[in-house]
Simulated assay, not measured.
Amino acid sequence: MSEHASWAAITAEDPDHSQWYVDRFRGLAAEGADLDGEARLVDALLPRGSRVLDAGCGPGRVGGALHRAGHHVTGVDGDPVLVAAAEVDHPGPRWLVDDLTTFDLGETFDGIVCAGNVITFVEPALRRDALTRLLAHLEPGGRMAIGFGDHRGYGFAEFRADAAATGWAEDLLLSTWDLRPFTPDAGFLVALLRPAAAGGSPGPR
Rank of each mutant, 00 (worst) to 15 (best):
G37L: 11
G37K: 12
E38R: 07
E38I: 03
E38Q: 09
A39Y: 00
A39F: 00
A39G: 00
R40V: 05
R40W: 03
L41D: 00
L41K: 04
D43V: 00
A44V: 05
A44R: 15
A44Q: 15
L45N: 07
L46M: 10
P47W: 11
R48L: 15
R48W: 12
S50N: 13
S50L: 14
L53P: 10
L53W: 11
D54H: 07
A55V: 10
A55C: 13
G56A: 11
G56F: 05
C57F: 04
G60Q: 04
G60M: 05
R61Q: 05
V62S: 00
V62W: 00
G63N: 07
G63M: 08
G64E: 03
G64C: 07
L66C: 02
L66M: 06
R68Q: 12
H71M: 06
V73A: 06
V73T: 08
G75C: 03
V76E: 07
V76P: 02
V81E: 02
L82R: 08
L82E: 10
L82Y: 08
L82H: 04
V83F: 06
A84M: 12
A84G: 13
A84L: 13
A85P: 11
A85K: 10
A85L: 12
A86W: 01
A86M: 03
E87D: 12
E87W: 00
V88H: 14
H90Y: 15
P91R: 06
P91L: 05
P91V: 09
P93Y: 08
P93K: 05
R94H: 10
R94G: 09
W95Q: 06
W95V: 06
W95L: 09
W95C: 02
L96Y: 04
V97K: 11
V97Q: 11
D98G: 15
D99I: 12
D99S: 09
D99A: 10
L100Q: 01
T101W: 08
T101V: 14
T102Y: 07
F103M: 15
D104F: 07
D104L: 09
D104E: 15
L105K: 07
L105D: 08
L105R: 02
D110L: 07
G111D: 03
I112Y: 00
I112E: 02
I112P: 02
C114N: 11
G116K: 01
V118R: 01
V118Y: 03
I119V: 14
T120G: 13
T120V: 15
V122F: 05
V122A: 05
V122H: 01
E123I: 01
P124Q: 09
P124N: 05
A125F: 00
R128S: 14
D129P: 00
D129Y: 05
T132P: 00
L135F: 04
L135P: 04
L135C: 03
L135M: 12
A136K: 04
A136W: 02
